[in-house]
Design a protein around this nucleic acid. Structure first.
Length: 409
RNA sequence: GCGAUCGUAGCUCAGUUGGUUAGAGCAUCGGUUUGUGGUACCGAGGGUCGCGGGUUCAAGCCCCGUCGAUCGCCCCA
């Protein structure tokens, strides 16, 4: 293949069932989003680089090595969004969306990370995103999770995607726990895997869910978050879990669940499945009360989640293929005017219609049959006399719609 | 960034221990006595076997490099 015709690594072009799966996910999202009163918002795909660097944490992998950043013609550093949250927070501040607070918003679209592609992971990937900005209430966390759960349930994943839930406490809790973890792991540094020794300084929390067997006993004996929770943090988490129980959202406690991005506080969660290989997380998020301040705004509590559209699309049952209501077979050119008139009329009455008008008459009919329509309308013009027949394979609607139409004019 | 596996027609794949002109199905196009036709039958086009080098009388097949894909590590949706 010619070099320039190769797609950019980690991007994909979809057609047929794959495209239908993708659309099924976004359609379900848009339907459920409305049931919960989340406004649809659109935000830019590009932002000033600082928007992401300041909010996600300079040392995170996403910021330090996975961002698609470039200088535009005026020399400004621009970044293709690696996630939605920071951009929405920026819009909240710069567009004056504070006036809508508490604000419930939803969006979906592409995001970009420079990573090695593998199953369920792409350089251009697509996310669903939901945020509640300006509410410090545990009820916001509950509502957001109820939304997520109903969405997954409507996608047929209510059983296979499990909600794992944790609290990271407030910032005092989080830093005390982090210090304790650091001390614990640093004391056993030489027993840790090579990866985890690297993680120790960068992000000691991540050692907790290390995949290296040799780390497991050390992680098992590590300090637990519950011992560091302030009274308020404990109370907050309690009200979230009570709310989930009342709302009928099943969950399990994952005391070692941490999130990679720096801005998370209190509630952290992920819906996981065992059907996607190494990329089990299908929807994840949490509370990020400090993020808007990081961007220079007033203290503004918020919660949100993002879900991977490709990952969900791989999990759902194949959507029913789009069916065709009518194929119009034009047996000879004399009838082509009538075919256009008939097709226009059928389409304006909501019947999906295609016209077969090339190749031999026999081929046209064969192709019409292969398209699998509910009905085939055959128009012929033998001896300059227009005649029509309808072959029906299912619900017969064509004759009814066409009854009032003079096809010859 | 690291590791493993894999690259043959537009797509899915076959191709024996290295041996003549690289095959099939699907798709595309054409034909099959104007046929009331139900996914048929016949035929055609389409390949520098990812790319470059090497070994050999001879390479789709063996070796090296490179690009790409897939899966995993890291990280994450």
């Amino acid at each position: 293949m010619v070099q320039s015709l190769q797609p950019v690594r980690g991007t994909q072009s979809l057609i047929g069932e794959e495209a239908d799966r993708f659309h099924a996910v976004t359609a379900a999202f848009d339907r459920v989003r409305r049931l919960y009163g989340f406004k649809r918002v659109e935000v830019p795909i590009i932002e000033p680089t600082a928007v992401f660097a300041r909010t996600m944490g300079e040392t995170t992998d996403v910021v330090s090595k996975e961002m698609y950043s470039f200088e535009d013609r005026s020399g400004d550093s621009i970044t293709l969004r690696p996630e939605f949250t920071a951009g929405i927070a920026r819009a909240y501040l710069s567009e004056g969306w504070q006036r809508f607070a508490p604000l419930k918003v939803a969006s979906h679209g592409p995001a970009f990370r420079y990573e090695r592609p593998q199953k369920g992971r792409f350089r251009q990937f697509h996310q669903l995103d939901a945020e509640i900005i300006g509410s410090a209430e545990p009820a916001a966390d509950v509502e957001l999770l109820a939304f997520a759960y109903q969405l997954l349930a409507e996608l047929g994943l209510g059983k296979s995607a499990i909600l794992r839930l944790n609290t990271l406490g407030d910032s005092a809790t989080r830093s005390a726990w982090r210090d304790a973890l650091y001390a614990h792991f640093a004391a056993r540094r030489s027993d840790l895997s090579e990866d985890s020794r690297d993680r120790l300084d960068r992000n000691p929390l991540r050692i907790l869910d290390s995949k290296a067997h040799q780390d497991w006993p050390i992680a098992d004996s590590a300090p637990v978050i519950d011992d560091y929770l302030s009274g308020e943090a404990r109370d907050f988490f309690g009200r979230v879990t009570e709310g989930l129980d009342a709302a009928g959202v099943p969950w399990e406690r994952a005391p070692r669940l941490v999130r990679g991005l720096d801005y998370y506080r209190h509630t952290a969660f992920e819906f996981v499945t065992d059907q996607l290989g190494a990329q089990g997380t299908v929807l994840a998020g949490g509370r990020y009360d400090g993020l808007i301040e990081q961007l220079g705004g007033q203290h503004t509590p918020a919660v949100g989640w993002a879900a991977g559209i490709e990952r969900l699309a791989m999990l759902i049952d194949a959507p029913a293929a789009e069916t065709l209501d009518v194929v119009v077979v034009v047996e000879d050119d004399f009838a082509s005017g009538a075919a256009w008139r008939a097709a226009r009329h059928l389409r304006s009455h909501g019947l999906s219609t295609e016209i077969m008008a090339s190749g031999s008459a026999r081929k046209r009919f064969d192709r019409a049959v292969k398209r699998g329509p509910a009905e085939i309308l055959v128009l012929s013009g033998k001896d300059a006399v227009l005649t029509r027949r309808v072959k029906s394979f299912g619900v017969a609607r064509v004759e009814g719609v066409l009854a009032s139409l003079d096809l010859s004019a």
